[in-house]
Computed example of a mutant assay.
Amino acid sequence: MRSAMSMLELVFAIVVMGIAVMSLPLILTQVQTNNTFSLQQEAILAAKTKIGDILTYEWDHNSYDAAAQRSFVLTAINGDGDLNCSATTFRRIGHVNADYRRKCSLAGDTASAIGTDGLDDIDDFNGQATTITATLEGAGTLDYVFTALTLTPTITYASDTATYSNTPLNNFTFNPNNANVRTNIKTIAVTASGGNQNITLRTFSCNIGESSLLPSRPYL
């Protein structure tokens, strides 16, 4: 007896092939969507990492006092006047008047203009773009496999004007791109571009100095 394909089997095979062909565009679309999402996540992660790196630097190159080995609060030339430092106590509103706590610069140092004078504070990263080159996994130190990403930081001063009264703080004016004045807040924006991506993450850093460590005590 000669074996052959029945009409039912042929129809069934045609139906299966038709379903597979119809599903192919959906599969390709889903793959493209997954690739786009992965690229967005890479761009966000790279920008977040860059911001974290910038935040490890001093708020301003005048903040750190090498002799005291700590960072101090600076006078912001165009900042909220109620937050100015006292010339007698070297503290401002909200500071605890005690040893080893945050205080203003004893030299009366002021915040500097945005500029590049090396890499010793946050604003030195302004406009300093870096490119992460795509590499195959295992072929380099980074695994950005879709495209090269360019990270461009932008550092500006932000407005910090507020109205004070007998009640709590009121009428706080905030402008994150107030670049022409020197205040108590710096805006850090990092734009990750590449592969049709243009993602910007922002954070803020404040002129608050730091507390010093308590002196060590011998064990009793």
Rank of each mutant, 00 (worst) to 15 (best):
A98V: 12
V181W: 04
N170C: 06
N171K: 02
V16D: 10
I93V: 15
N166W: 12
D80K: 02
D109Q: 12
S205W: 02
I93G: 00
I93W: 07
A179K: 09
S205T: 11
I185K: 06
L119M: 15
M5S: 15
A46M: 05
P153I: 08
F172E: 06
T183Q: 00
L8T: 11
I155S: 01
V73E: 04
L28T: 00
D53A: 04
D124V: 00
L151W: 09
I114K: 06
G79E: 05
L28E: 00
A13I: 15
D123T: 02
L142H: 07
A68T: 12
M5D: 13
G81L: 11
T110W: 06
D123G: 03
I188H: 01
H61C: 06
T191E: 01
V96K: 07
N184T: 03
A139E: 14
K186V: 02
A134D: 09
R182W: 00
I185G: 01
D80A: 03
T130S: 10
D160Q: 02
L119D: 13
L201D: 03
T167I: 10
T173K: 00
R217S: 13
E137M: 00
M7D: 01
L214Y: 15
N97D: 15
F125C: 02
T49L: 07
D60T: 08
K48W: 13
A134S: 11
L26P: 09
N166S: 13
Q30T: 15
D80H: 05
G138L: 10
Q32Y: 03
V31M: 09
Y219T: 14
I77T: 14
A148R: 10
I199W: 00
N170P: 05
